[in-house]
Simulated assay, not measured.
Amino acid sequence: MGLPLLWSNMLLPRSALGIRGRTAANVAFATVYGAAFGARPNWCSRRGLRWGAAAGTVVVAGYGAALAIPPLRRRLAGFAGRAPEVPLAEWAAVHIPLGTVYCEELIFRGTLDPLLDAAFGGSGKWFAAAAFGLWHVHPARSAGDSVPATVAATAAGGLILSWLRRRTVSATAPALLHLALNVGGSLAPLAARAQRRTLDQPHDFAGG
């Protein structure tokens, strides 16, 4: 449990790598970590794919509903200023799937969850959730977010993702849900801002 936290909160931040370097380093760390500790992600699980696709669809529908409801759309638009260091297409197609989803799901759901289940039984999920929350301490500080709130929210999210892994015996289902949440979280605020600008533009109703 300590190795991922040391990596995320101390070693990687001190590496002074750019975003592309951090993504490559994260992928390398997760792959080596999984190999060293006998990861069992079971990526090719059909059950995991079905559950993950269903969960991802619910998330996408939720973002769509938020964009359709004015108060929620305005709230989403407020997050549009958090632009990544790279083009949005690269961020959504490379850095989220590889630097975030692949790494975190392989480390936490594919490796730590089975190990903690074997060591602690049903109580293992609480340790896994705590570790997942603490993994986000430095990212929260870098973004200027509340560290306690971020840790609590991501730990709660970790419980859901771990439940999916246990339900499907695969990291594919939580990975697809994680992907939908993060990609949607990057694209929905921009869509909300664009939609808000369109609605705020004056319209010329003159004419025959």
Rank of each mutant, 00 (worst) to 15 (best):
A130Y: 09
L12Y: 00
E85C: 09
L177F: 13
G62I: 13
H136G: 02
F205Y: 07
H178L: 03
R46D: 13
L179T: 07
G38T: 00
A156R: 01
G21L: 00
V147F: 09
G144P: 00
L187F: 07
Y63I: 01
N182E: 04
M10G: 13
A173I: 08
V137E: 08
R73Q: 09
L5N: 01
G21M: 06
A83R: 15
S162G: 15
A16Y: 07
S8Q: 14
A80S: 04
G110E: 11
A130Q: 08
R47H: 14
V86F: 06
A152S: 09
V59R: 04
F29T: 02
G133P: 00
T168D: 08
L134Y: 00
A192Q: 10
N9S: 06
L5F: 11
L17W: 02
T168V: 13
V151F: 10
V147E: 09
G124M: 12
L106G: 12
L5Y: 09
A66C: 06
R109D: 05
A30R: 07
L115G: 08
T154I: 15
S146T: 12
E90N: 03
A130F: 10
H95N: 02
R196D: 01
Y102S: 03
D117S: 14
F108D: 02
A61R: 11
R20M: 04
R46P: 07
R40D: 10
M10R: 14
G144L: 02
G208S: 12
A65E: 03
V58S: 12
V32R: 09
G34V: 01
H203W: 12
D200L: 10
T31I: 02
S45R: 10
H178W: 03
A89L: 04
G99A: 06
P148G: 08
A194N: 11
L67T: 06
G185H: 02
G62Q: 05
V151M: 03
Y63S: 04
R20Q: 12
R75S: 15
T57G: 15
I107D: 01
A149L: 15
R14A: 15
A54C: 12
G121W: 00
K125R: 15
G99R: 02
G18P: 04
P41V: 04
A191R: 05
E104V: 03
V58M: 14
G157C: 08
R166F: 09
V137T: 11
G81E: 09
G208I: 13
G133H: 08
K125Y: 03
V169I: 14
L134N: 02
V27S: 02
R50W: 14
L67N: 06
E85I: 03
V32W: 06
R165Y: 04
A66H: 10
Q201S: 10
L5T: 07
A28F: 10
V183Y: 02
L177M: 12
D113I: 13
Y33N: 10
